[in-house]
Amino acid sequence: MHPSTSSTVTLNINGEKHQLSLDHRTTLLDALRERLDLTGTKKGCDQGQCGACTVLVDGRRTLACLQLAVAAEDQEITTIEGMARGGELHPVQQAFLELDGLQCGYCTPGQICSAVAVLEEHAAGWPSAATEDVRPEHGPPELTDEEIRERMSGNLCRCGAYVSIVRAVARAAAQQDESAKEEAA
């Protein structure tokens, strides 16, 4: 017997549940863009080679183009449309805007989603390929420009906005450190 090639799937996106009948071939990226009119998530290559479709799935940055929508059921998906809270931009968004971390804007949502996750990953103590010594006794790496560049490398930008993007991520990271200190105090 031929298996059914579509399913009814509930996707949890930016805190809202959406029930969809989905062709199994539909990627999370196409479900967002073509079915839910959430077009902020961009399709740059559709092959996992550019990062433009980066979204957060259960808080972790993920390429929506290689994620089958049916397999993302019941997971918490956050897209660029869900980054701003209560009408206020996420600090990463604010920094991109003010420091001109964008030109054509097409890689921007992916860069921002990725940067938000980079700050989380760094806060969790994750090393990167730029980390001199990954052994835990060396402690978590400082989030230098070099660390930011390596961690953001899965997001290509053809306009060449990298320099401003790194500056924006560094500023958002510094702000996060500030507010963490304030909270601690």
Binding site: G51, V57, Q67, A129, G154, N155
Partner: peptide
């Protein structure tokens, strides 16, 4: 592992 792919792909 860190030398491979990207942060997004390593998460998946």
């Amino acid at each position: 592992v860190l030398a491979g792919a990207s942060g997004q792909l390593r998460n998946m």
